[in-house]
Design a protein around this nucleic acid. Structure first.
Length: 605
DNA sequence: GCCATCGGTA
DNA sequence: GAGAAAGGAG
DNA sequence: CTCCTTTCTCTACCGATGGC
């Protein structure tokens, strides 16, 4: 979803991050960041409509369209370049005399309401399942394997961001939009430069009603600081730029009834109450469940079974219970409270003082085991394709799996005893598991599911402690020495390695042949390239000739470092086919972006 | 050909 | 994708 | 204490794939 870089949601009342308070509260004249740096002194804003479709990143090399990518982490993303080429509003060739070697264009692919309805009429005739809404239809179409089908679906495209080489940059966002238009893109005509926040507010309010007359769906307005120089000065806070914001129109709210509340048990043992709702149509989808988060939220809502509640889709995506209409409560309705026993294993649950979550602490709770296994196999961890919820359920129930290490003892024959498991699937699975043995140490560490060790902290830890033995034997105090790791996390890690079951898990994974140490061992000094020394690289997408591991090797050998996620500390992002969120983040952080060719060139110099 | 499951996206 | 909670740095 | 980052958990839908 969304326009341009990820943007802050409208501020929820508090008012440090958005200009939403200005829009909803006339009295609040205080100008708040991120857009506060101007408004008077000649600072201008560009307002654009936020089209509800699917974000697309296009790469042009020497003026020719070579890649089209949606989001994703790019590791296993599909090639949608062929599909993108069927979109008529995307030029195959830039209308530019001397095109820079690489041009990146971002924009929104969408289906007009008319085309959407036409497609659904057609599908109704042929008895196919109807699309729920234009956004889903557009996203689904882009992933279609047969580009002829895509061609027929008549996708449209509005460009909104242009990235040129340094030196070729435009001075303002407005100029970028104009240039996009002259080089052959469709740019949404309903854009405007505003010179004050009052003007921005006017624009927002005008389109709140006017958008209903547009032939495509919009869900808000994007406001950007016009000056590129100022954008750079403002920079970025956390996940978002300080110079842009999305102002979303209020979500549609609808009443429904809570038929029941179920409690789910996550991999950490956390108990999450979920409202089972009488299904309602909302923002083009059917909503039947909504998270209630935790015990605190639950008591705040004072929710009873059978209550009528107001639900909405936060950001048009996530169902949320806004409030309970207590006056409509049936008599004798039962208050729902967090259970005192785990719904999976019936052991008593605990809630630590000062913490919001209620947890099952039974080390052999099957729900926790299942969750841990799913996490271990997940994409950011060992990326074992084909292992999903149902399969894990089956394998745990049939005692095929009692820990992640058991995965590496599985054979096709043993798997084929399971339901719906033929030779083909079983072979695929065994091969996927074998492949995971090559995944780097940091991913394995992440996959272990140690509390507070996500992708970032796993990376930090593996950099400092280059093999598990060190990490397992070192004191909590030593772990705390890592920048970014404090006492809580250090304690959590240290304790994890002191549990005998975990120690034997590590031992077995080691025997299975998993990577439990970083490869950056003895470095050949002669290979070190000054341009690479200490530089942090991130790879994204499928590179044209190199395998990911090969590219990583080359960088590491040259003295560089390859990490998994883009942050402010990243120096270069190497982009391949179907680059996803990392490219996007890199762009929004202004990090230097390299193609494979450029990387290789840098290596030889 | 239908159905369940999985992976990816918003 | 949203949002809540909680940890780390200063 | 505040600001920021990170972790963790949650939903709905669509297309692809393999089993039977």
């Amino acid at each position: 979803d969304g326009n341009a870089p990820p943007l802050t949601p409208p501020c929820q009342g508090g008012g440090q991050d958005g200009i939403m308070p200005l829009l909803s509260n006339e009295e609040n004249k205080e100008i708040t960041p991120p857009l506060s740096k101007g408004g008077q002194g000649g600072v201008s804003y560009v307002c654009e409509l936020k089209i509800d479709g699917s974000a697309l990143a296009l790469t042009y090399e020497n003026g020719i369209l070579v890649r089209g990518a949606t989001r994703g982490d790019g590791v296993s993303g599909e090639d949608i370049t062929q599909n993108v080429k069927t979109i008529r509003s995307i030029p195959l060739k830039l209308n530019l005399d001397n095109p820079p070697p690489v041009v990146e264009v971002r924009g929104e692919a969408f289906l007009s309401l008319a085309v959407f309805e036409e497609i659904n009429r057609e599908r109704e005739k042929t008895g196919e399942q109807l699309f729920a809404n234009p956004r889903n239809a557009a996203a689904g179409t882009l992933r279609q394997l047969d580009s002829k089908v895509v061609d027929k679906r008549r996708l449209d495209f509005f460009a909104y961001t242009l990235y040129l080489d340094a030196g070729n940059e435009q001075n303002t966002q407005w100029d970028s939009l104009e240039l996009l238009q002259t080089i052959g893109f469709k740019v949404n005509p309903n854009r405007k430069v505003c010179y004050s926040l009052d003007e921005v507010r006017e624009y927002y309010e005008f389109w709140d009603t006017e958008r209903r007359n547009l032939p495509y769906m919009t869900d808000g307005v994007v406001v950007k600081i016009n000056s590129v120089l100022l954008q750079k000065q403002l920079g970025f806070t956390q996940r978002f730029p300080r110079w842009a914001i999305a102002l979303k129109y209020p979500a549609q709210e609808v009443p429904t009834i809570v038929e029941a509340v179920t409690v789910q048990v996550g991999r950490t043992g956390a108990l999450t109450p979920v409202a089972e709702l009488k299904p309602v149509q909302l923002a083009g989808t059917t909503v039947s469940r909504a998270s209630l988060h935790n015990g605190d939220r639950l008591s705040e809502l004072n929710l009873h079974i059978g209550d009528t509640v107001i639900v909405r889709k936060a950001g048009e995506i996530i169902p949320e219970v806004v409030r309970v209409l207590a006056e409509l409560r049936p008599q004798n309705a039962q208050l729902f409270q967090m259970p005192s026993c785990c719904p999976e294993c019936a052991q008593p649950v605990v809630r630590e003082k000062g913490e919001a979550v209620t947890r099952c602490i039974n080390t052999s709770c099957p729900a926790i085991l299942r969750g841990s296994l799913i996490h271990f196999c997940s994409r950011d961890a060992l990326d074992i394709n084909g292992v999903g919820e149902k399969l894990v359920q089956q394998m745990v129930d049939s005692n095929l799996l009692t820990s992640a290490a058991d995965l590496y003892d599985l054979t096709a024959e043993r798997l084929m005893g399971l339901e719906r498991m033929g030779k083909k699937l079983a072979d695929k699975l065994v091969s996927a598991i074998a492949q995971s043995k090559n995944k780097p140490y940091s991913r394995v560490l992440y996959g272990l599911g140690i509390r507070h060790v996500g992708t970032v902290n796993a990376q930090l830890l593996t950099e400092r402690f280059t093999n598990v033995e060190d990490l397992a034997t070192v004191s909590a105090a030593a772990i705390e020495g890592v920048y970014g790791i404090g006492p809580e996390i250090a304690q959590s890690v240290s304790q994890w390695f002191r549990v005998p079951a975990n120690q034997s898990l590590i031992a077995r994974l080691k025997i299975a042949g998993l990577q439990l140490h970083s490869e950056i061992k003895s470095q050949n000094l002669a290979d070190i390239n000054l341009q690479f020394a200490g530089k942090i690289f991130v790879l994204t997408g499928t590179l044209p000739t190199l395998k990911r591991d090969e590219a990583k090797d080359l960088i590491v050998k040259a003295g560089g470092k390859v990490t998994g996620s883009v942050s402010a500390k990243t120096d270069y992002v190497v982009v391949g086919e179907d680059a996803g969120s990392k490219l996007e983040k890199a762009q929004s952080l202004g990090i230097k972006i390299l193609s494979e060719a450029e990387l290789l060139e840098l290596l030889v110099t």
